[in-house]
Structures are given as structure tokens and as C-alpha cells.
Amino acid sequence: MDLLEIRHMKKGFDGLGVLEDISLSVGKGEVVSVIGPSGSGKSTLLRCATMLEKMDGGELKYMGEAAAWEENGRCVYAGKQKLKEIRKYFGLVFQNFNLFPHYTVMKNIIDAPVSVDKVPLKEAQERAMKLLGQLGLADKKDAYPYQLSGGQQQRVSIARALALQPKILFFDEPTSALDPELTGEVLKVIKELAREHMTMIIVTHEMQFARELSDRIIFMEQGVIRMQGKPEEVFGSQDERVREFIGKFTS
């Protein structure tokens, strides 16, 4: 069964089509990278998939459970309770982290498990310490976000997402807000997750990284998936647009 299933997703802003007709399935353990020029709708796709944005049409399913579907040409969402359950299946890592500045690193990580999922405090803390250890941040547990470098903040935000034990993790350009010398430490963490067969969908401009790590690469352009396939297929594509785009980043 596919973890995530998107069918004919459509989204526009003020009548302007941004996603035209996106269909996409992601299986367990799969790592999918989404690339494409600016404005092609990559973030919008992620925001619709994570329900930060309501889609105008199409179908969205996690673990076979429908979050949204079409009825009489209109897109309807499941009830509040159902959506709450479905939200547990995924996590999202933002480009600019969005850590909670008034909470320590530890509190950032344990607060949602404790106050949303009702995980016992002890257990949540143990889970958090384990994650912080894995991400090389054990000594930062009492720091506040402003005391951390961008790379450290992004790793904390990854830990925060993982603490809820999602089945699938989305990343929207997780290294774009970072200085080049900090990019590596975040990419390393994502690679580590891939090795542990975490299911991930990553929007990125890091071509080399996407190529090494992904099981599949999706190339988006003007709101449609122009091409998708194994990294070697996409990077070796004869499609003019794909070649031109990749050329820009690997020259």
C-alpha cells in the first residue's frame, strides 16, 4: 500500500492555476526529491499535501485513508477528528525552521508529543535525548533557538518532526536558508534518515544530493510534473527543459 497518494491535485490562487493536475504515489521507505524552477509549484505541492493549503480539486490519501476527495466537482475534506489522525502520519521541515523561540531545544521537541499525543513526559524526554544524540545536539538540549547556528536549528526542527514518529517526512528546501558551510551537516542528517529507510519527500536545489540519495526524482514545471524517474533517468534525460535546468545547477 502506498503511504501517500495524490490524484489529480489542483490548486490555484485567485483564479491563477499553480498546480494543474498532479498525481503522485509514494511507497514505504521511498525517498523522492522534487526539483524544478522557481515558481513551478513545489512548495504549493508540499503545502497542499501537508494540509497547510486547501487544494481546489483532486484526492489526497495517507495510508489508504482519505483526507480529501472530490464530490460533485468540489474538493471536500474529511472531518476534524479524521484529519487530526491523518496529520499524525506526516511531518514537515520548513525552509526557515520555524522553531518556537520561547522554548528550549528540549521543549521544542517534547511539547507536541506530550501535549498533543499525550506521550508520558519521561518517555518523550528519552525519545528526544536519543534523537538529539543521533543528530549530534545532545549538549544543546537546554539552549534556546537563538543561541544556535542555522544548521543546528534545522537539525532541531528535524528532531522535532521525528519526535512525533511520522510515517513520512516532507522537507521544503531544508538547506536554502543556510550558509553553504552549514548545508552539509543538515544534508548528512537527511542521508542518515534515508539509510534508515525513512520515507521522505524533499524539495531541494541541491542537485548532487538529490541524485545520490533519491530513489526517484520529480521534475516540476509550471504546475505539472514534467518528468519523473530514477536519478540516472532524469539526470540523463534528453528533455530540453530538464537538461537546461539541471545544467544550471551542476555547472
Partner: peptide, 27 residues
């Protein structure tokens, strides 16, 4: 307040009231 704070809270599963009281209001 940056909209990212609301969005982070939402994706983490906080309800509207919970997000407001714990994340937004203190800031």
C-alpha cells in the same frame, strides 16, 4: 507574529486554541 509559527504548530498537531495559548500568546 510570523505565519510560520502557526503553520509549525498546525503541522505538529496542535489545535487552534492550544497553538494560540502555548505558542502564539507568550510571544
Amino acid at each position: 507574529m510570523p505565519v510560520g509559527q502557526y503553520e509549525a504548530a498546525k503541522v505538529l498537531g496542535y489545535g487552534r486554541a492550544q497553538a494560540f495559548c502555548k505558542i502564539i500568546l507568550p510571544q
